[in-house]
Simulated scan of single mutants.
Amino acid sequence: MNYFLYALEHVYTDNTHRDRKFLGYFDDPDKAQKEKERLFLFRGFSDYPNDFYLKKVELNKINWQNGFTVVVGEMGRDYLTEDDFIHDYSTIIKKLSLETVFKVSHVYSIHTFLDDEREIGVFSDQKMATDVVDLLKQKDGFNNYPDDFIVSEILLNDKQWSSGFG
C-alpha cells in the first residue's frame, strides 16, 4: 500500500531573493488549512498570503536513488516534476496513526551564501530513514559529502512557526 501526507510550505519571491519556509507535515488537509489561517496573522506570511503551498508527499519514497552529479542550489527542493506524483490508489497516512515522521535531506555548502540541498524523502520510522542514508552514502555525489545528511523527526500536525518574518 502506498501512503502520502501533506506538506505545507510558504515560498515567496521579493526584489532580492526567493525564500522557502517549511511549515509542517499533516495527515489531514483541514488541519493544514487551519495552520495556514493561523499563520496569516503573522507579519511576513500576511504580506505574502498567496504564497502558501500544500502538496502531497509520498511516504517512504527515496527521491534521489541514483545520487547526483550537478549542483541544484538553494532551491534544489524544487527538482521533481512529473515523477513527483501520488498514485490514485495511495492512501492518506492518517490510517497509520503515526505521531511523527522522519524527514531525510542532504545539505552541503558550496560557498558562504549558497548551499546545495536535496530533500531525500519522508519516512515512517527512524530505522528506515537511517537505512536510506546508509544506502545513499555509497552513491555518486553523496559519497563526496557523507556527513551532510540530516534526519529530522517531525511531529505531525504540529506548529513549526510561532512568529512571523521580514
Rank of each mutant, 00 (worst) to 15 (best):
I110P: 11
D125E: 06
K55I: 07
H106R: 08
L39G: 01
G44Q: 03
E58S: 14
S97V: 09
F123W: 05
E37D: 07
D78L: 13
D83W: 15
R77L: 09
F26R: 01
I62K: 04
L54Y: 01
K94Y: 12
R43G: 00
F102R: 05
N60F: 06
D131K: 10
F42W: 04
D125R: 09
V70P: 00
K95D: 15
K94F: 10
R118E: 08
F123C: 01
D30A: 12
Y53K: 13
F45V: 00
E74K: 04
V104W: 02
I120T: 12
L114Q: 13
K94H: 14
G44C: 06
F45H: 02
F68Y: 10
L114F: 12
D27S: 11
D30K: 08
I110T: 13
E99K: 11
H87C: 15
H111E: 14
L23Y: 04
V71R: 00
L59W: 01
S105L: 04
S97M: 10
S105D: 05
I92F: 10
L80P: 08
D88N: 15
T100Y: 08
R38N: 05
A32D: 06
S90W: 10
D78F: 12
G44R: 00
V104N: 02
I93K: 07
F68K: 02
V122Q: 08
I62L: 09
Y48W: 07
D47S: 12
D131E: 14
L114A: 11
A32M: 06
D28W: 10
K31V: 12
E117F: 12
V133R: 04
S105A: 05
L114S: 13
E37G: 00
D125G: 09
W64E: 09
